[in-house]
Nucleic acid binder design. Structure first.
Lengths: 175, 175
DNA sequence: CAAAATTGGGTGCAAAATCAACTAACTGTG
DNA sequence: CACAGTTAGTTGATTTTGCACCCAATTTTG
């Protein structure tokens, strides 16, 4: 459900192949969603089935044909309806917090190691997001679209930063 | 996979029925995981199948028999192995951020409404977490288990608070 | 020059998750 | 007294997701 909407959103920005969609999920959008490519291709097929997108085969000289997917009017409607229907509630799922919740089964040192390793991973992700943000032209953020896109990245940065602070606090006060 | 480990973790705290597990997912653990009850019962059956848990039928006078699930030694090992294997990477999925990312398709007022509604929902969740934390005996948090459990709730609180701040910033600077 | 990555697409299968019922007895509330 | 809620568990169908493959040509890298 969500994936279909996100793909419609991307196709709304510009027509794309499944391959290019996967690129977006891995880079520009990786801070709030990811998707398996098999899933992307299948969802694309569904969208075409329902008339929310159309395919145009564009031959290329050296590389395989591009199956360019274009959003239709019906697709645009579905997207705006999703956006207008109010904020979706996210399920609130964090397996790492599960590990912390039950970490008392481990020795103190092992718990510390778990937290330290997580700290490293979080720092790594944060650095990635920060370098992504550097690549954003701030003058372009004057228009609403760019502003909102940059804002989601800012949120991801805040979340990771908050987690870093939390990890440090837990490491400091762990009995 | 994760669900099976979390159930093992809960069974580690005390033997439980599927019904009681569901209660935990809905209350004490709802800040980092949720689960459908059908899924809980099926996963429980798998755990028994694999020898990670055993069932003891406890008859009751008025209510249906309790299918009390007890964790086995093998189950405990699986749990500690999961915890020792290092922090699991979470997929980073937030459908609401997807809505914000593509919200430029809407009118300015509708975008604001989306953000304001989300703000309300976030405040509501935050208040829930805060009242949960009030119920935690801080003297009990001196032992490691209680400390870690309380810590995961603190993390959820920080995340929600960070999101509130972010929402306010976006609402303020939205072009 | 060989090995790996890129471009572009796809299949099959299994596990995980969700939705919606259905059973059945008891308990509390208006 | 009727109706809603609680306790306890189960089944079936469908969707979603993830993993592991497969194809083929080109281009880059060691």
């Amino acid at each position: 459900m969500v994936l279909a909407r996100l793909i419609l959103g991307l196709l709304c920005l510009s027509p794309m192949t499944g391959y290019e969609l996967k690129k977006h999920f891995d880079s520009s959008i990786n801070h709030f969603w990811n998707a398996d490519k098999a899933q992307i291709y299948r969802t694309l097929a569904q969208l075409v089935d329902k008339g929310y997108a159309t395919v145009r085969t564009v031959p290329q000289s050296n590389y395989p044909d591009r199956q360019e997917h274009h959003i239709t009017e019906a697709g645009r409607e579905v997207l705006t309806q999703w956006l207008s229907a109010g904020p979706v509630e996210s399920p609130e799922r964090d397996p790492f917090m599960g590990q912390v919740f039950f970490a008392a089964e481990l020795e103190r040192e092992d718990i510390e190691q778990l937290l330290v390793k997580r700290r490293e991973a979080t720092q790594f992700i944060l650095d990635d997001y920060l370098s992504q943000r550097e690549g954003i032209d701030m003058r372009a953020a004057a228009d609403r679209r760019s502003f909102l896109m940059a804002a989601t990245l800012d949120n991801a940065i805040r979340q990771q930063a908050a987690q870093l602070e939390w990890l440090d606090a837990v490491l400091e006060y762990l009995p």
